[in-house]
Nucleic acid binder design. Structure first.
Lengths: 137, 137
DNA sequence: CTATTACCCTACAAGTTTGATAGGATAAAA
DNA sequence: TTTTATCCTATCAAACTTGTAGGGTAATAG
């Protein structure tokens, strides 16, 4: 299940991408428009900034803004930053790999093989979908 | 992320499907072979029995066994019973649908559209993979 | 230079889920 | 009637999720 953190993050990003004027947007405005707890959203936007997806400006007239063009923000980046691994099992994850305690031989594990298929098909979608695709649909 | 419950359940099912002799297999044997806590596995197998995927026999010589042929056990069934919804968002789930609190219009939600794509591609895999496919790979 | 604005950061807390354990009840077979 | 193995409920610690509190810091306005 997708966490609210990720869902809220995606909604905030689409909100920013949809704006024609590209100046900074305050947390309060996004939180109001998207029905997200302001403080919770604050921590999410901070994460996205540290990940290099958002930029920020302090003080009056400050806020958050997209650092790259929306077309250059693939879903893979956003999901990995907010949700973590895309794979359903650590032993199948490309970016967060971890061995299973219970599995003696990964290559002989049928669950592993199944989850590789799921990972690949999900990855294909996330790789070919950018923030720009999200708002144009 | 796939829970251990689902992972263990799948491993137990493949263990049963792989056996040539089709008699009941005791929890203890599966737990030993697959490195799963016996008591935890007990509750998982019970769930699978109540869902009509496994049958059981009490007393000496008892245990669990597959009720249907492995080819007639699709992954969709197993995953939904053990893991719950296949979709990453309740508002996108076919079998466990729930409206989002924060979304005024589901059809206008870009996150919703994205997750429908993910759901469909994952569903396609699970629908076309049976327990028999799992052990033959 | 000072007040205001708005992001920055850490800590924390309630609620839920997960993974696992304990212990006895029940049914079948020897 | 004893043994075996599933059935079932309760419980529990640890982890995670969602959200709140509160002060620190940098930028801007006047």
């Amino acid at each position: 299940m997708l966490s609210k953190k990720t869902k809220y993050g995606l909604k905030a990003l689409t909100f920013l991408a949809r704006r024609d004027v590209k100046g900074p947007v305050q947390i309060a405005e996004i939180s109001r428009s998207e029905n997200i707890s302001q403080k919770f959203l604050e921590s999410i936007l901070l994460t996205l900034r540290k990940a290099g997806i958002l930029g920020s400006k302090k003080g009056k007239g400050g806020g958050y803004y997209l650092i790259r063009d929306a077309a250059d923000v693939p879903m893979t980046d956003v999901i990995r930053v907010l949700e973590g691994p895309i794979a359903m099992l650590p032993c199948v994850s490309l970016n967060f790999y971890e061995k299973c305690d219970d599995c003696p031989d990964e290559n002989a594990c049928s669950v592993n093989k199944l989850m590789i298929q799921v990972r690949d098909s999900t990855l294909q979608i996330f790789r070919h979908t950018s923030l720009a695709d999200l708002i144009s649909e």
